[in-house]
Design a protein around this nucleic acid. Structure first.
Lengths: 105, 105
DNA sequence: CATCTGCGTTAGTCATGTCTTACCGTAAGC
DNA sequence: GCTTACGGTAAGACATGACTAACGCAGATG
């Protein structure tokens, strides 16, 4: 979760949406140096969000859907509990009001 | 997004899953002081994840589903693109056909 | 009206994390 | 076999952020 905090790492993930890319290719489109990109890639790999594929002399980094799935699950539960707490608070606030049942999308 | 990076803020969100709570109540169950909790609450409110309801002398903080929805949407798009890129990479690997230019560079 | 509780704010200190420069190992090309 | 391109690593400077202590303000209570 902390891996998504840095905007540079978010930019790296955005660059990887189209497919795997090499380190130099990523660093060319980012305002930071290549070692910084390597460090961010290490963090993202350690978080399980990225996978590396050595392709000859280069190293191709790609998104790993499994790592994102975990975060989605966490936010899903938080969203569900937030809706539940919101409905309960609204019900407690006005007893005369009808039961506000929010739809979960 | 950066608001979810700090573990203390995540703990605050977890405490708020059951419903709105006051600052002192939150700080009592956390290993940090009350002012720190106030600062984290300010950050979370600024991020749109929390809403405050002055209840007499106290201030009740509650989860706002809308703020979580935005993060869910972002992760949803990232998940979708990751799956797409993964399927494309698997197809390129399996068919072993000489792709002319799969990358969009 | 006086006092107490609860909360937000500020200033200051300290830890964490990010970026850069320099260096080394490894794979391709002549 | 030598040179070049590519990428990871280490050390250091720097900025950002989190935490505590002290203070001030508003609402409730007697």
């Amino acid at each position: 979760m902390a891996a998504l905090a840095d905007p540079t790492r978010r930019a790296i993930l955005d660059r990887l949406r189209d497919g795997p890319r090499a380190v130099g290719d990523l660093a060319a489109g980012l305002p930071v140096s290549r070692p910084a990109v390597s460090q961010h890639l290490r963090v993202l790999c350690d978080a399980g969000l990225l996978a590396v594929t050595p392709e000859g002399n280069r190293r191709l980094y790609a998104l790993v859907p499994g790592g994102i799935s975990d975060l989605r699950y966490y936010l899903d539960g938080l969203w569900d509990d937030a809706l539940d707490a919101f409905a309960r608070a609204a019900r407690a606030e006005g007893t005369r009001k009808p039961d506000p049942k929010p739809q979960k999308e």
